[in-house]
Structure formats: C-alpha cells, structure tokens
Computed example of a mutant assay.
Amino acid sequence: MDHIVTVQDAVTAFADFMEPTKAELDAIEQEMPVILAGVDLVDAQIIALDHAPNEVDRRRIRRARHRVLAARRELANRTAGTTGLSGGAA
C-alpha cells in the first residue's frame, strides 16, 4: 500500500517556488484594466447569445470592444514609455 505522504512530498516539493514573484504580481496589476475590459466584453457577448441580438446588445458589445482597445492602448503607451529607448524624434 502506497502512502499518500510520499506522493504529497513529491507534489508539494516545489510549492514555495510556484508562488508568483513580486514582478509577476506587478505585471498582472498593470494589465488588470485590460483583463477587466475583456471580461466585460465576454459578458456582453454572453448576454447577446441568450437571444437574437438587438440594437442594445450591439451597442453594448461595441462599447465593450472600445473599452478593450482603449485599455490595450493605455497599457502599450505606458509600457512603451518605460522601456527607456534612447534616440528617437521627441
């Protein structure tokens, strides 16, 4: 009979290393507006699946897509400003 303890030791041996680092958590925090906008878009699409899409559904999806694009643009502009590129026409 195999004891669960030996399996547990093998499974949890790297548990300390599986936690996200501070840098990874910071990256997730920076991307959170994009993630939330994407969730809103999926929610709008799910609502439209429930019935034949009407004009309100189309507007809801269109606005959610615009929020996703705006959040992505903001993230890209923020990360592009922190890369420290030298030269360039400013």
Rank of each mutant, 00 (worst) to 15 (best):
G88L: 08
R72V: 05
I46K: 09
A37G: 00
A10P: 03
T21E: 04
T6N: 14
R59I: 05
A23H: 12
T6G: 06
I46F: 05
E31L: 11
G88D: 05
G38Q: 03
N54F: 01
E29I: 08
L85V: 11
P33A: 03
A52K: 11
T12D: 13
L85G: 06
P33S: 02
I28G: 02
H3Q: 12
T83I: 12
K22T: 15
A70F: 09
Q45G: 03
L25N: 07
I4N: 04
E55S: 08
G88S: 06
E24I: 10
D50M: 07
R62M: 07
A27T: 07
T12E: 13
I4E: 10
A13I: 06
E19Q: 11
M1C: 07
S86V: 07
R78M: 12
I28Q: 10
T83P: 01
G88E: 04
L25C: 06
L75E: 03
A15I: 08
L75N: 04
G87F: 01
V11E: 04
G84Y: 02
L25E: 14
P53Q: 02
I47E: 11
M18F: 10
N77W: 06
Q30D: 12
I61M: 04
M18D: 09
A27W: 04
L69D: 13
G81R: 07
E55C: 03
R62T: 13
R59A: 09
V5M: 10
V7S: 10
A37W: 01
T21R: 05
A13G: 08
N54P: 02
G38Y: 01
N54S: 05
Q45V: 01
T82A: 14
D43L: 15
P53V: 00
R65A: 01
F14P: 00
T21I: 05
V5S: 14
A52T: 12
H66F: 10
A71K: 03
V56L: 08
H66K: 15
Q30E: 15
R65K: 14
V39R: 15
A64Y: 00
M1Q: 07
E19D: 14
P20C: 01
A76S: 07
T83V: 13
A71N: 02
N54C: 04
L36E: 15
P53K: 00
R78K: 12
V11M: 07
V11Q: 03
A10I: 09
E24L: 13
R60G: 02
E74Y: 08
A70G: 12
L75C: 02
V7C: 05
V39D: 12
P53N: 00
R63P: 00
H3R: 15
A13N: 06
T79F: 00
V42I: 15
T6R: 14
I35C: 06
A90Y: 12
R78P: 02
A23N: 15
G88W: 03
L41W: 03
N77F: 11
E19S: 12
G87A: 03
A71W: 00
V5Y: 05
